[in-house]
Design a protein around this nucleic acid. Sequence first.
DNA 1: CCAAAAGTGTTATGTCTACACCCATGA
DNA 2: TCATGGGTGTAGACATAACACTTTTGG
Lengths: 247, 247
Amino acid sequence: MTTNTSKGYDPADYPPFAVTVDVVIFTMVDGALSVLLVRRGQEPFAGMWAIPGGFKLPTESLDDAARRELREETGVDAASLLVQFGAYGDPGRDPRMNVVTVAYLAVLRDLEGIVAGTDAADAQLVPVERIVRGKVALAFDHRRIVRDAVERVRRDLESTGLATAFVGPTFTLSELRAVYEAGWEVELDGANFRRAVTAAAGWVVATGKRAAPGAEGGKPPELFRAGRAWKHGAPIRRPRNTTRGGR
Amino acid sequence: MTTNTSKGYDPADYPPFAVTVDVVIFTMVDGALSVLLVRRGQEPFAGMWAIPGGFKLPTESLDDAARRELREETGVDAASLLVQFGAYGDPGRDPRMNVVTVAYLAVLRDLEGIVAGTDAADAQLVPVERIVRGKVALAFDHRRIVRDAVERVRRDLESTGLATAFVGPTFTLSELRAVYEAGWEVELDGANFRRAVTAAAGWVVATGKRAAPGAEGGKPPELFRAGRAWKHGAPIRRPRNTTRGGR
DNA sequence: CCAAAAGTGTTATGTCTACACCCATGA
DNA sequence: TCATGGGTGTAGACATAACACTTTTGG
C-alpha cells in the first residue's frame, strides 16, 4: 500500500487545469420540462448551443461560481436553488485545453419572460426530450451533462421538495401535480395526489384563497404555498410499472 | 442576459487549478462503518491523517484517476465500486495553491487484512462516527468530505444494492442485515428483512449451501449471493421515526 | 342544462410491522 | 436440555389505487 498521497507541491509537479462551472437551468414550458440554452459566442463550438457556464475564480467557492453564473444569465440570485450533481473531466472534452467542469442544476419559473427579452438567436428554452434524443446538438459534452441533470431532477422530485420550485409562490395542486407528471412522464390521480401532498405535514399550506377557473370552467381551485419542510422527505412516491408517455 | 459563456481561450485569461481525486474507502469493522485513512508524508498537513487522493492526469478521466488511486492504495482494481459524489473547491482549502478535488467513495471488504500488512503508523481504519464527531483530525476539508460520503452511503443503501459490496461473494442474511443496521443505526426485524430482500426479484440468490453456526450455536444460516439486479431499486426501505442508537 | 375541473368518500388490495412459534445447532 | 440464532406463519395497522360521487364554475 502506498502510504503517502503523492501530493507534490512544486508547481512543476502537477498538471494545470481550467475549472469551469456549468449550470443546467430547468423550467416548465407548456407542460414540458425544458432547459435554458445559450448560443456560444467564442471558439471552440462558436455558434453552437450550450448550457451556461464560466470559469471558477480562485477567490470564490464552486457554489459561489455557480450562483454568479446563474445571476449573470438570468438575473436570478438564489443560492438555495442550486444543486451540484457532477464533475466532468474526460480528456479532450475541451479541444483546446484541460478543463474540468463542475455541473449544477437550478429550477426556475417565469423564465419564458426573461428569454423573450433576449435576441431569440442567443437564448432559448428547449424541452429536455429534444436534447436527450439528440435533436439539438450541444457543445462539449453538454448533452451528457443535461442527461445526468434530468436524472437527478427526476430523483429529487421524489426525495425533496424540488417540485415547488417549478411553480409560483402560490399554486394550485393541479399545477404541482403537472410538475410531477411532466418530470416522471406519468399520470397521477388528482384525488390521491391531493391526499398524499396535504397529508405530509408541512409540505404545502392552504392560503385560504382560490384561483380563477380556467376558460372552460370548473370549480375554482384552492391556492397553496410551500411549507417549511422543503427538503425533508418525499411528498409522493414515483409510480413504477408505468408505460412511458401516459396510459 | 449574457449570451456568451465568456470562455476566453488565451491561457492568460483563465486561472489555473490543480485537480485532484480523493477516495473515501468504506468497510465494515466489527459492525462499525469505517473509513481508510492514510498518513500524509508531505506538506501541507504532513503527518496528519487524510483520505487517499492524488492529482488527476490530463490523459485520464476522473473515473480513471479515482480507479488508479484506489488501486494504488489498496491493490483493488474495480471501477464498478467507485461512485462520484461531490466536488470541493473552496478558496484556501489547500493552503499552498488552488486545488479543486473531485470526491469518490468506494466500498470494500477484507480491508483489515490489507491494512494489517502495512505499518500501523501509515494506514488505519477508523469508524466514521469518530471522524464525524471530530475525534480524529483530518487534513484539508477531508472531514467534510467524509461526512458527505457517509450521507451518500446511507442514501445509496436505500436506493441501490450497495450493501452487498460490504459482504463477501456469498453471505448470510444476518451479515447483510448488519450492514443496513450499522449504516442506518437502526435495528431491523430479521423475519421481515428476509422477506423484503428475498421478495425483490434478482436481489439475492440462494446458493443452497449453509454457513456454520456461530460459537454459541444456532441453526446454520443459508448462504446467498448478490443477484444481477445490483442497482435497480431498493431491497428494503429505511425506517423513519427511529431513535438513533437503537431502540 | 352540460361539460369541465376541483375536491370528498369509499372500498378493495397490497405492504409493513410486530411477534408467536418452530428448527437446527453448540455446549 | 437449554440457550442461541435461523427461519416461517399470521393478524392487525397502515398505505395505495381505483373510481363513484358531489361541488362550483363557464358557456
